[in-house]
């Protein structure tokens, strides 16, 4: 199926029924934090989690990044009660997931999109999930439409492409219209259009006041989506900061220069005391000189240039900067 006909994310006017005590008239649900405190988990000889501690806030997409094996998936599995931590706790809205009566109306999770009974249709896959939460078939059809699988709903899930499985997994997470969403590597197997679609979905979910935690091992996927970043390594949090801060720090004082005379420019700037790195065919990044000093040095040496601008780091650069010191990221 084409990605072009994917409907824009929309939510039903009436939220599905919730447990008593829910409040928050403006959002239709009570926004919730996810609080992970001091999680430790050992699998045989491997210390998968080693004092993992962070909080996921509502209203923003929180990126959860780190290399494979950093403990991202294990943390998410502990949050939804699949694995039991050796130490520490994970609470959703102050409550343990395992004590929730209809947990999917509080937390939606996409942990493994390939977890499907291949001979069952997508609609039936969602139907049993919905029924386990006391939800009906109508809600199933809503989320199928929401993720763009309405026309493929009665096909066997075994015949789905990886991208369609990701969408089905997202539909399952959205089924209970929960205030907290956990997505483990949701971009896997998606083509660029699919990635763009998920980014839009994540943004709108967060904008609706939900707490959204998205794990990825590729920083570029989270570019322009994540408002907050939790960087994990070796089972603990290495950094836990707002994305804007991170990028500002990584951009700090650097200048991007575009010139056709790259060699001469680098020589002139080095003489002026700058550290120069080639970042493209005609682009270099200059550190140690301000924009004005760079322009002065180039003019003095009569080197032509097309552009001198303050450098804005990509999320990936910020991540590299952040993790340069840590051996586990090599």
């Amino acid at each position: 199926m084409g990605w072009a006909d994917i409907p824009r994310t929309s939510y039903p006017k009436t939220a599905p029924p919730r447990d008593a005590g829910a409040e928050g008239a403006t959002l239709g649900f009570r926004s919730m934090d996810v609080t992970v405190t001091g999680l430790r988990k050992r699998f045989g000889p491997t210390q998968a989690l080693d004092d993992m501690t962070f909080t996921v806030r509502p209203g923003v997409v929180t990126g959860f990044v780190g290399p494979n094996g950093a403990g991202k998936s294990t943390t998410m599995r502990i949050v939804v009660g699949l694995d039991r931590p050796d130490e520490g706790s994970a609470l959703v809205g102050g409550v343990a997931y395992t004590s929730m009566k209809r947990p999917l109306t509080h937390v939606g999770a996409l942990l493994d999109a390939s977890a499907l009974q291949p001979s069952r249709t997508a609609r039936n896959h969602l139907l049993w999930l919905a029924q386990s939460q006391g939800l009906g078939a109508r809600r199933v059809d809503e989320v199928l439409g929401q993720v763009g699988l309405a026309t493929a709903a009665r096909r066997r899930a075994g015949g789905y492409s990886l991208g369609m499985r990701q969408r089905l997994g997202l539909a399952a997470a959205l089924l209970g219209d929960p205030p907290v969403l956990l997505f483990d590597e949701p971009f896997n197997g998606l083509d660029p259009e699919g990635i763009a679609w998920i980014r839009g979905l994540l943004r709108s979910l967060a904008a609706g006041g939900r707490a959204v935690l998205v794990s990825s091992h590729l920083m570029s996927e989270l570019q322009d989506v994540a408002g907050h970043l939790i960087v994990a390594g070796r089972g603990r949090v290495v950094a836990d900061r707002a994305v804007d801060d991170l990028i500002a720090a990584a951009s700090d004082g650097r200048v991007t220069l575009r010139t056709t005379a790259r060699e001469e420019a680098m020589e002139a700037l080095a003489r002026a005391g700058a550290t120069v790195t080639v970042t493209g065919g005609d682009a270099v990044t200059v550190a140690g000189l301000s924009g004005a000093e760079t322009v002065a040095a180039l003019t003095a040496a009569a080197v032509p240039f097309a552009e001198v601008s303050a450098h804005r780091a990509t999320l990936e650069e910020a991540y590299m900067e952040l993790t340069r010191e840590s051996v586990e990221f090599r």
């Binding site: 009660g81 699949l82 999917l104 009974q117």
Partner: peptide, 18 residues
């Protein structure tokens, strides 16, 4: 066992943590 083989048991138990 099919649920274990397909990894579906995770979805089942997340839906019914009891």
């Amino acid at each position: 066992t099919a649920e274990y083989r397909r990894g579906l048991i995770g979805a089942t138990l997340a839906a019914s943590p009891g």
